[in-house]
Nucleic acid binder design. Structure first.
Lengths: 210, 210
DNA sequence: ATGTTCTCTGAATACTGTTTAGTGAATAAA
DNA sequence: TTTATTCACTAAACAGTATTCAGAGAACAT
């Protein structure tokens, strides 16, 4: 049946169209400032139509997170798989990967990090929240593997690899949010990159066996 | 005029009463989940009355942040002033101070960290946002001083002290939010303390001149 | 006793996420 | 070709909540 397939394809395109519009609107107004009406207008649909493709506003937003998380995963796994680099260099390659994810779409990264609270995640469908959980597991796992490889080679001190991965991730998330907060209080310049580099240099030295 | 003074005192008490109620409600429902009606009910006032004491919901919430930030400042300055400890121990004392702030009221700490976005801070009165800026400056300054003291004593590597302070703060904020997110996705146990200790041990080693 | 100020509230307003009931076109069946 | 069914959408209604407004009543001053 060619008709069914064409319809499904069209449906996916419209879904994508809504996500593109949402991404634009969320980036310019933030999660709270964006209204479903804004997004509908940008996507050239009525607000009601959005609900045929997404359960609610949270779920629409979280679907965008998923795209970002997948980008993150592929970059971090890329670093994990560069087995030729010495462990020390790979920590810095990780820094670069994280920063590139941020550069891809700074405002949405901030939004995503602020969004993922306990309360919000409860309102998602089990499928979507399962996918997010899986993505989180994956990039933490990739960082942990990268670290463990360094331990195996005798370069790093032996400590809980998942805890290490969470620390690296938290530094990234914390610095991103901190820069955003500073911009809210003050018109300071964006010092994320040098600070992130310094942080991972310190971390790198801190886990080196000497 | 004793009457004027009594009235002012009573006014401050009612303001406090509202803040106490708000703290309770925000902690149990989060910022988004708490309604002004909930808070008014808890404080035994009508919602309209709340607006005689606070400009809006954001400002009421941010006033609570201020209490937490002041607690944070006094603890961190306490560590900064323990000049008898060796620099290495002071990094761990800092860890303890941060963790104690968290324990004081975990849910509100999470709420505060999620709240401080550019958009939100714009809706505050200049006075309040000025006070928040000042508090932020103060605890960052205290951590930076503490670090610089270690540099002066020749124990730490010389790097930008404010950047160092922001890294420490970001680790704390990032780990707190990360734990909260995990609880939202999964019913994992709270591993904040061991992870925070590990993070500051790594940081401590990373800045040590050897 | 009367006017004034202070403090509070009930009711109205405005905005926004979400649902409902229904329309018209595309498709399938007769 | 005509009729029935499904699909994709939307206008309008609904519901919840932050915020404002107009006025009541008590405390205070004259």
């Amino acid at each position: 049946m060619g008709i069914e397939e064409r319809k499904e394809r069209e449906r996916q395109m419209r879904r994508q169209q809504i996500m593109d519009a949402a991404k634009k609107v969320f980036a310019s107004k933030g999660f709270g400032g964006a209204t479903m009406e804004n997004i509908a207008e940008e996507a050239e649909f009525s607000p009601a139509t959005l609900y045929l493709y997404f359960k609610n506003k949270d779920e629409l937003f979280a679907s965008l997170n998923l795209r970002m998380l997948q980008d993150l995963i592929s970059r971090v796994e890329g670093v994990r798989d560069q087995k030729d680099l010495v462990p020390e260099k790979r920590i810095m390659a990780l820094e670069k990967a994280l920063y590139e994810v941020y550069l891809e779409d700074p405002l949405n990264v901030v939004n995503v990090l602020r969004f993922q609270s306990r309360g919000r995640l409860k309102s998602l469908s089990p499928e979507l929240s399962g996918q997010i959980r899986e993505c989180t597991r994956q990039y933490i796992r990739a960082i942990a593997d990268l670290f463990q490889e360094g331990v195996r080679q005798g370069a790093f001190l032996d400590c809980h690899p998942v805890a290490f991965a969470e620390i690296v991730w938290s530094i990234f998330a914390g610095l991103v949010l901190n820069e955003d907060t500073k911009r809210g209080l003050d018109e300071g310049k964006d010092l994320l990159e040098p600070t992130l580099i310094l942080a991972l240099e310190i971390i790198g030295r801190g886990i080196m066996k000497n």
